Simulated scan of single mutants.
Amino acid sequence: MKPLRLLALLFLLLAGASQAQAQFGIKAGVNNAVLDGQNINMDTDYKTTYHVGAFLRLPILGPLSIQPEVLYSLQGSQFKSTVANYDTKLHYLNIPVLAHVKVGPVYAEAGPQFGVLLGARENGTLRINAADGYGPVDRTADNNYKKNDFALAAGAGLELGSLIIGARYTAGLNNINDVADLNGANDPRLKNRVIQGFIGIKFGK
C-alpha cells in the first residue's frame, strides 16, 4: 500500500503549506460503474459499487479553489453473452485534481483524474464446453487490465455548512484492456464510466 502512504504524506505537506486557509474533508458514496467501448462482443451492464476517500481544498482566487483527492473506488462491469455471465471488479486508487467553484451553497467542479489499478477479479459463470455446460468462475484478473487509467471528471452539488452532497461523472479516456486477440485484430477496447453520488464532511475555515 505504498501509494496510499505517499499520497497521505502529500496531503499533509499541502495542508501545512496552505496553513489555516486549506479545508480538509472526508467523503464516501455510491458508484454506478460500467466498462464501455468497442469490439467487446458482449453486453456490459452497470454495477452498483462504492468509493471512499479524502480531499484537500486549496483557495486560489475568490470562489475558485483547487481540490486534489485520494479515493479508493471499486469499479468494473457485468459482462453477459450466450456463453458467459460474470462480474468484473476493478479496485482503483484514484487521484482527481479538480477546479472547484463555489457560489453560495452551490458548487461545480471539473478536472483530470489519474487511477492506479490495485487489483482485479472476475466471478460468475462461464460455459466450459457443450458436454459440461456452465461452471462457476472466481479468479484473479490482474493481468487482463492495464495498471493506469486516465479520466476526466465533472460534478456539482451543495455545501450546507460542513456537510457536502454531490454527484460526479468520470469518463475514462484510455483503453484499459490488456488482453489481445490471437490475430491482433479487433481487440476489445474497454473504458471506465462511473456515475457517483456522495456525501462528505469538510473541516477548516
Rank of each mutant, 00 (worst) to 15 (best):
I26V: 02
I26H: 00
K27V: 01
G29F: 03
G29H: 03
V30L: 10
N31I: 11
N31Q: 09
N32H: 10
N32P: 04
A33M: 08
A33R: 06
V34E: 11
V34R: 13
L35S: 08
L35D: 09
G37C: 13
Q38R: 14
N39Y: 11
N41T: 12
M42T: 15
D43F: 02
D45C: 03
Y46V: 13
Y46Q: 13
K47R: 11
T48P: 04
H51I: 08
V52A: 14
V52K: 09
R57E: 06
L58P: 01
L58Y: 02
L58A: 01
I60W: 06
L61A: 13
L61E: 08
L61T: 05
G62N: 12
G62T: 10
L64N: 02
L64R: 14
L64P: 04
L64F: 06
Q67E: 07
P68D: 00
P68N: 01
V70C: 01
L71T: 00
L74K: 14
Q75H: 09
G76Q: 15
G76F: 11
S77F: 13
S77D: 13
Q78D: 08
F79T: 14
K80A: 00
S81N: 02
S81K: 04
S81L: 03
T82I: 01
V83L: 11
A84E: 07
A84G: 07
N85I: 06
D87F: 10
T88Q: 15
L90H: 14
L90Q: 12
L90D: 11
H91D: 12
L93W: 02
N94L: 11
N94W: 03
I95Y: 05
P96M: 04
P96K: 05
V97I: 06
L98Y: 12
H100N: 15
V101M: 09
V103D: 07
P105M: 03
V106I: 10
Y107F: 09
Y107I: 04
A108C: 09
E109R: 13
P112Q: 01
L118I: 00
L118M: 11
E122L: 09
G124E: 06
G124S: 07
T125W: 08
T125F: 08
T125V: 12
R127H: 06
N129I: 04
G133V: 01
Y134K: 01
Y134T: 07
G135L: 05
P136E: 09
P136L: 14
